[in-house]
């Protein structure tokens, strides 16, 4: 490629600069606004091999989102223009959803801190599930009260608590309530509704 002279580059620059064209009377909302960058720019969602509908994970306004993915990894998250709630818009938190999904601080392994330990250690999901199930059963069995001394039925354990739910799916809340309350007899079951 021949070396471009300074005048060549100046001409190219002026041709690419949209202001002179607009000053010359071209419509600033049409071709006059175009530049090489705009001409060659591609939509960031173009590489997606799938798109799915989602709901913003932050507040309860319930903005609809479109998640664009490639190889089952997110490449962009945008407001869903068809939603009557957000009509394609997102707030600073909602617009950060992509950053949330791909945050370098996302946890991807199960960590365990033994009593009195000063650091985490990595454990397998299966080991953790097994240990949690055993601890749950042990604590429940040690603390379960069938009847009060006066014979009133209690059927509960006060030794295990659960916090959370307001950031989770309805279906997840349902299973939490069903297993913890109806199954295990836990009474200390709460979420952020009072926070």
């Amino acid at each position: 490629m021949p070396r471009r002279t300074i005048p060549d580059r100046a001409v190219e620059f002026l041709r690419e600069w949209s202001v002179p064209r607009q000053m010359a009377g071209q419509d600033h909302r049409r071709e006059a606004a175009e530049s090489a960058m705009a001409r060659h720019g591609r939509p960031r969602t173009e590489k997606a091999d799938s798109v799915g509908t989602s709901i913003c994970p932050y507040c309860a306004v319930g903005c609809a989102q479109l998640i664009y993915a490639k190889d089952r990894q997110p490449i962009a998250v945008e407001g869903d223009p068809s939603s009557p709630i957000n009509q394609g818009t997102l707030c600073p938190k909602g617009a950060a959803t992509m950053g949330l999904m791909t945050s370098p601080m996302r946890l991807d392994r199960v960590l365990h801190r033994a009593p009195h330990a000063t650091e985490w250690r990595e454990v397998s999901l299966d080991w953790a599930m097994d240990r949690i199930a055993h601890l749950t059963k042990q604590t429940r069995d040690e603390s379960f009260v069938g009847d009060a001394p006066d014979g009133t039925r209690l059927n509960h354990t006060m030794a295990i608590g659960s916090l959370g739910g307001a950031t989770l799916d309805n279906e997840e809340n349902y299973l939490i309530k069903k297993l913890f309350t109806a199954g295990l007899g836990m009474v200390f079951v709460e979420n952020q509704a009072r926070v």
Binding site: I55, I85, L100, H112, R113, H116, A128
Partner: peptide, 24 residues
């Protein structure tokens, strides 16, 4: 001096699982 056994398990976000939310 703290004897609590702690498990920290990675959860998932909407988009990474299917389900429903009920808005305000």
């Amino acid at each position: 001096e703290i004897g609590t056994e702690v498990f920290l398990m990675p959860g998932s976000l909407s988009g990474e699982k299917a389900g429903s939310f009920t808005n305000t």
